[in-house]
Design a protein around this nucleic acid. Structure first.
Ligand code: SF4
Ligand code: SF4
Lengths: 165, 165
DNA sequence: CCTTTACGGATACTATATATCCGAAATAGA
DNA sequence: TCTATTTCGGATATATAGTATCCGTAAAGG
């Protein structure tokens, strides 16, 4: 099916929340999970991925939780996606040419050294995908949310968060 | 892991073989599988996908097999990829906003009707990927193979195919 | 008539995604 | 100091999708 894990969607949403937070404030995974209606333990794994990538920072203890580790204008969609999904190409080449029964060992080696037309096209397509995600920043998302979501809803959400962390 | 099925690679290779074939000639799935060193029955499923998409045509009976159903300059990489992989977007949106506990039913509906910033970015990235694959034709691949692969290897492969169909 | 082929459905096996659980270390507050 | 809370990493279980095989049917050629 070639689908991104659902953790990617969650991570993007969580980042958009954290990026809009006042300086110094932290939100624990438990609250983020309840806010988005997703399983706490599994979301925690995604947050750990973001933390390892240096996008968010987790602080321990009561009053602990997550906050942004970078400026939102310095984090791209690609950074977030790759932090939880990994950086592997969508096209896995199994070096099928090497199995061709009508080539000698030497010919296999020769062909194997040359760049492959098929793989190049597929990898370039991946790169076009990444390039598009690289071009959109977390700050853009925050701005879009500010415009698209009614302010009363934003205020209510903020109050809800303040209420539990 | 977000990877294309290996059938995609096989399908691309098979198409590059079929597209280089002399007019009227057909190659059965059994031979294509042996030529690429992949399981026959599973490759057959991919070929059926290509046939359903109208890219190749299968003919029954002895001396039967597959041939191109379209001109190679009229078939894009995207056509082949989508024929075996499907057309679904890599980003599946689970309408997470609807689960937010601090919104009323009415507000959920309102937000749900507006275009979503996150989904739009992800879908646009997919479209950039598709656009790149749309731009490369099967005829381009055939030409590249003709240039990259030593002619003696091509001749040997042709002879190998002639030998069994 | 017999063989070969594509085709479609059913089935088994394997890898990945999804989800949960636990113990350890850190930290804030009583 | 003690307790509660949190992140973190590893281990484990379950569900789903990818991989692979099998079989019966229909069509076509020799
Ligand atoms: S020809 Fe290209 S796509 Fe095929 S196996 Fe080789 S490198 Fe991979
Ligand atoms: S906000 Fe966008 S990405 Fe998130 S659930 Fe809604 S449509 Fe999907």
């Amino acid at each position: 099916m070639m689908q991104l894990k659902n953790q990617v969607e969650w991570a993007l949403h969580c980042c958009s929340v954290l990026a809009a937070l006042p300086e110094g404030k932290t939100v624990p995974a438990k609250v983020l999970a309840e806010f988005h209606g997703v399983p706490r333990e599994y979301l925690a794994k995604a947050m750990q991925g973001l933390a390892q990538a240096g996008i968010v920072a987790g602080t321990l203890g009561p009053t602990g939780g997550y906050r942004m580790a970078k400026d939102p204008s310095d984090v791209s969609f690609l950074d977030i996606v790759e932090a939880v999904e990994g950086k592997k190409s969508t096209f896995a080449c199994s070096e099928i040419r090497m199995k061709n029964p009508c080539m000698t060992k030497q010919e296999r080696k020769c062909v194997g050294e040359r760049p492959c037309g098929i793989a190049k096209v597929m990898w370039d397509a991946d790169e076009a995908w990444r390039e598009h995600l690289r071009g959109v920043l977390l700050s853009d998302l925050v701005a879009a949310v500010g415009e698209e979501v009614p302010s009363e809803v934003l205020v209510k959400g903020e109050a809800w968060l303040n209420d539990r962390c």
